[in-house]
Design a protein around this nucleic acid. Structure first.
Lengths: 217, 217
DNA sequence: TAGATTGTTAATCGATTAACAATC
DNA sequence: TAGATTGTTAATCGATTAACAATC
């Protein structure tokens, strides 16, 4: 199974397929054709078939796709069938919000530690996990097999933190700080940047240019 | 100034330019060439020039771009030079995290109301704004000029909520629920979906396929 | 078998990169 | 003026869509 060279555009769409298939599953739908799914998701049937065929033939001519089977297969492709231990660094509002997000657990992301620099938070429990001090991270990573670190700390400290985490064996960073960590981290370390403010600016652009168009008509 | 037909790919990159220019500004850099910027941002200089020229010529041959000027212009394009009133619907962890995010204010997004369905939260203040009950939203929108609603409520209730908000004049939805609101909302209403779990799944995909490749070598 | 729908190749469309003349 | 660098056109690359033969 060589999954090398799958385009970013395809990978970006996979979680969305997964979500829609999950909903169909909940609704008790057993099978679906690329055409039906394309209407629901507002993409072309052609694109769905092309996307899926990057990973193998999951359907059957004359029948379509079995929802449960396809859901499972995409889950496997996304790596949701294995458990990944995760820590959260930064127990502010956002860090705690993410910690409380129950569904991650269901997808194989197991929260095993929460860390913060603020001594006031020491020992405070979030979802049954006591917040620990940041300087204990190296020791923690030595004793626990953690792959993912979620970074909800200010951008000023995030580069140094990323360095330290990678040196202690962290394999992937889920970065909420306003920096593109991928540009400062060694090759092979996975970085997923979440820039919420950029999302809001995009909204602002669309809102503003819509209003401009209204005026000019 | 006709900004019709700017491609999504370009719009997606604008906030990133804005961020890098802001950093250069803070660092006291006065001018920059597309080439220098391209190295910093890890994109091609050609792309930078193409992107900017969608909106007009902001540079000068032989000189490059004035950082302050370009920063301001991109800000204008993104609509960050006007104030947009915003409410947050859903005062759970994520809603409160976003409410506490100070920088939005600086970019022209003014938080004017926070709402929740849980009576326990009634009157609790977040950043000086008391949480109000959701059933008071229509009246609130009648009395206040609000353009943007941030939705941090469960997906079960988000479609009805969106309907209600739009009926009461909301122009844009910043949606954190696990649904594609753009597919259920009338034309002309701006929707920006933020699917954090999809981001984590992408991370998971990259991590998993990296590990698979390691094994096969 | 006939009908439906996939898997896949070919055609089209759009986005990115390269190149260079214009010009500061 | 000479050098630098933009704005912009042309070339390339990649992604999406259309079409259809294969096949359940």
């Amino acid at each position: 199974m060589d999954e090398k060279g799958i385009s970013k555009a395809v990978i970006k769409r996979l979680p969305r397929y997964y979500r829609y298939l999950g909903e169909l599953l909940e609704a008790g739908v057993e099978r679906i054709s690329s055409n039906e799914l394309s209407e629901k998701m507002q993409v072309t049937a052609s694109q769905i078939r092309q996307d899926l065929n990057n990973f193998g033939g999951f359907g059957q001519q004359g029948y379509g796709y079995n929802v449960q089977y396809l859901y499972n297969e995409i889950g496997k492709i996304l790596g949701l069938d294995t458990v990944h231990n995760m820590i959260i660094v930064g127990a502010g509002n956002l860090g705690q919000a993410l910690a409380n997000y129950v569904n991650f657990e269901k997808r194989g992301f197991r929260l095993v530690g929460i860390f913060d620099a603020n001594p006031v938070l020491q020992g405070v429990s979030v979802r049954g996990i006591p917040i620990q001090m940041i300087d204990t991270i190296p020791e923690f990573l030595q004793n626990n097999d953690v792959e993912i670190a979620t970074l909800t700390i200010p951008k000023e400290s995030v580069v140094d933190m990323a360095d330290m985490l990678v040196k202690n064996g962290i394999r992937a960073l889920w970065n909420y700080a306003h920096t593109d960590l991928n540009l400062v981290v060694p090759d092979g370390v996975i970085v997923e940047n979440v820039h919420l403010s950029e999302s809001l600016m995009r909204l602002s652009y669309n809102l503003t240019s819509y209003e401009r168009n209204q005026k000019n008509q």
